[in-house]
Design a protein around this nucleic acid. Structure first.
Length: 553
RNA sequence: GGCCUGUUGGUGAAGCGGUUAACACAUAACCCUCUCAAGGUUACAUUCAUGGGUUCAAGUCCCAUACAGGUCACCA
């Protein structure tokens, strides 16, 4: 009997030379400190990372780093349909943009670092086959010759009879094939998959633990799942998960909640080999509300905000994106951030119990708010440096101006920056130009003046001329505004707004209207930061020039 | 259809048998103020999907129901 099994196994896996225990020796237990977590990010080589997977990569990374563990990158390319040319490079770039650097795994399309490789599944063929063969030898796996047509028929029958769907029990036709029959079919050249001969009983319950959700009770798995596919002889996800995560000594498997349903299969696979089950964390999906008001999974195809590229183009700082993702990842993160505004992200300890188990809505508004706060805390020089990088790629015109006027630009960004209550108006690098364009002559060639209360040309001329001749102060912040008020008194405007509100009819307007005229003449905008700061940077000559421009019209 | 997960304000959420049901975003009003941004103050769930039950006491425990999602592939 054992000889027969061996013959079958050899026939199924003619190229296998090693044994499971050979591999056990090749990939020994990692030497890490107690409690160190080993996590992984395991994408298909699709060329890019979207928000959902970036979130889980960040969580994996944090979980490992918090404990001086290992975070590695494994490429799951067992499904050719999901692979694209240079797909690994794109993923690596996206991760790098967010400072998520794996300790082990693929570093480009072909190479890897680390002792537990290969880190790409298509190169692990021999290992999977060794493990599968071991199962066959022990009578725990068998070849299945069912065609997809036959499988469809089984399902139809099951649906018709309202029976549980799947390849199990008496529906598992090939399970009861004799070894000789199997041998003969293979010899005859029949295509086959390899299926697990499941020892489970659907009527028995098992309790599995999820680090975020707690205990979950399932019926035991009794499905004879495919572990090796027929045409390419590559493993299915289930089997690759078992082999890879065991051999690479993953301690914490973090994955999407769509995997909860196959949890019993995985637990059974580990059990059949007598391997210790890693800890599992099933993450909620990131959702969005679409145009029709329907709540659905954030889709990398349909939703621009799902792609990492979107934030890059918008000029949302990557650290702000990370901060936002952390608020989704751990519900206590936001509070921690508010209480520790100056601490580094690395000081926050990631907690599996604080992972949201219901799918959270992706809130772009909130991201913008976080970005705004983040940008408000940067120094003018940091804004300048980062903006230079961003404009170089996305706004060459602005880039040139910035590069040629470094010190001036920094002083522009420095207006109302720093201190207890820094100005918060930039939401992204792409938004900055619209806030500061008027400070650069090159961008102020054809301004669209937003005259507001006072629109009469004569009146505007009077105010501008009078101000420039008699009241302009550029060297004393405390004095400039009292001077404007003085002018108001001279020209018949109320210098005191409260008073104006009591008796509006006694005046032509108030000091806000008057400074509004100066503001629009200088910047074309009704809303700007502190006028004195702007005038000081503009300087007397450019103020004159801009006033003249308005007066000539 | 079977199995599993989830459901607290517009949004993200805290809450783990006794709290006025935190906090943050958004929204609105007021204050401050040369405009804006910021900041400050206030408002915003008589109620935790619904219905039962356990308990002196339930968002919190139990049971049903509803709704949403996942899964039942030689995709991951």
């Amino acid at each position: 009997m054992n000889d027969k099994l061996k013959e079958l196994a050899d026939l199924m896996f003619p190229n296998v030379t090693k044994t499971v225990s050979d591999y056990e020796k090749m990939y020994p237990e990692r030497k890490l400190e107690d409690g160190a977590r080993v996590t992984r990010f395991a994408p298909s080589p699709t060329g890019f990372v979207h928000m959902g997977s970036l979130l889980s990569a960040l969580e994996d990374y944090k979980a490992a780093r918090d404990t001086n563990g290992i975070f590695y990158l494994r490429i799951e390319d067992t499904d050719q349909k999901r692979s694209v040319e240079n797909g690994i490079t794109g993923i690596l770039n996206d991760l790098k943009n967010f400072d998520i650097t794996p300790d082990e795994g693929m570093i480009n399309e072909t190479d890897a670092i680390g002792e537990y490789g290969p880190y790409i599944q298509s190169k692990r063929q021999e290992i999977y086959h060794t493990f599968a063969k071991d199962l066959v030898l022990r009578g725990l796996a068998y070849p299945c010759f069912c065609t997809s047509v036959e499988l469809d028929e089984i399902r139809e029958i099951q649906e018709l009879n309202k029976e549980r769907i799947g390849y199990y029990g008496s529906f598992a036709k090939c399970r009861s094939l004799s070894i000789d029959e199997a041998i003969n079919k293979i010899k005859a050249g029949c295509e086959f998959t390899v299926r697990l001969k499941s020892p489970g009983d659907f009527d028995k319950k098992i309790t599995l633990h999820d680090e975020a959700r707690g205990d979950i009770e399932f019926p035991e798995n009794d499905l004879d799942v495919v572990i090796i596919k027929s045409t390419d002889k590559l493993p299915t996800y289930h089997f690759a998960h078992l082999v890879d995560d065991h051999l690479m000594h993953t301690t914490h498997v973090m994955r999407g909640e769509e995997w909860i349903a196959s949890f019993p299969i995985h637990a059974q696979l580990f059990e059949v080999f007598g391997f210790e089950l890693p800890k599992y964390v099933h993450l909620g999906v990131v959702m969005k509300i679409d145009e029709e008001g329907v709540r659905r999974k954030l889709s990398k195809r349909k939703d621009k905000e799902a792609s990492v590229e979107f934030y890059h183009k918008e000029g949302i700082p990557k650290d702000a994106v990370k901060l936002y993702l952390m608020t989704i990842a751990n519900s206590n993160f936001e509070e921690w951030l508010n209480n520790n505004p100056d601490k580094d992200l690395s000081e926050f300890k990631f907690d599996f119990k604080k992972i949201s188990t219901s799918g959270s809505l992706f809130d772009v508004e909130k991201l913008f708010n976080i970005s705004k706060n983040y940008l408000s805390k940067l120094s003018a020089t940091e804004i300048y440096d980062n903006l230079l990088i961003w404009t170089k790629e996305f706004d060459p015109e602005f880039y040139n101006i910035l590069e040629n006027n470094k010190d001036y630009a920094i002083s522009v960004f420095n207006i109302e920056r720093g201190g207890e209550k820094p100005r918060k108006d930039y939401t992204s690098y792409s938004s900055i130009r619209n806030f500061v364009f008027y400070m650069f002559d090159e961008l102020f060639e054809n301004p669209d003046y937003e005259w507001n209360k006072i629109t009469d040309k004569e009146e505007i001329a009077t105010i501008l001329n009078t101000y420039y001749e008699k009241y302009m102060v550029l060297d004393n912040k405390d004095e400039w505004f009292p001077k404007v008020k003085e002018m108001c008194d001279e020209l018949g405007y109320a210098s005191n707004i409260k008073e104006y509100k009591k008796n509006p009819d006694m005046y032509k307007g108030n000091v806000a209207d008057v400074s509004g005229v100066i503001r629009v003449a200088l910047t074309s905008k009704t809303n700007t930061p502190d006028l004195y700061e702007i005038m000081k940077l503009l300087g007397k000559d450019r103020i004159k020039e801009r006033f003249d421009r308005v007066l000539k019209k």
